[in-house]
Amino acid sequence: MTGRLDRWADPPLLVLASLADEPKHGYAITQDVAETMGVTLGAGTLYAVISRLEAQGLIEPLDAVDRRRPYRITAAGAEALAQQASRMSKVASLAQARLRTGLGMAGA
């Protein structure tokens, strides 16, 4: 059932969240997303997302180091991520509050 609610784990959002604290290259992003968010991003998915986010100006490439090119979140990307996080936070708070009420009523 919870599998149907996986929209929160949109790869672009995960990549933006991963880049929110510091620039990362492809491997570092996949590791970070897997460890902190429990989602495995394949190479195809990751670079499809990177190319799209880059086209939208939400991330930007830095100079490559040892053939690995790090990406950095832009100001526009940080703003978009903050807005989305705020919306998700409101939904999460609302859902938790209503679940508590509902569970309380069910237990009464």
Binding site: G26, Y27, T30, G42, A43, G44, Y47, R67, R68, R69
Partner: peptide, 20 residues
């Protein structure tokens, strides 16, 4: 070239090939 480096780092495989 970045994808190739990532594939080397992660090992690639059938799932990665299909995803790509």
């Amino acid at each position: 070239s970045e994808v190739l480096v990532l594939l080397d780092d992660t090992g690639g495989g059938l799932a990665a090939a299909m995803g790509l």
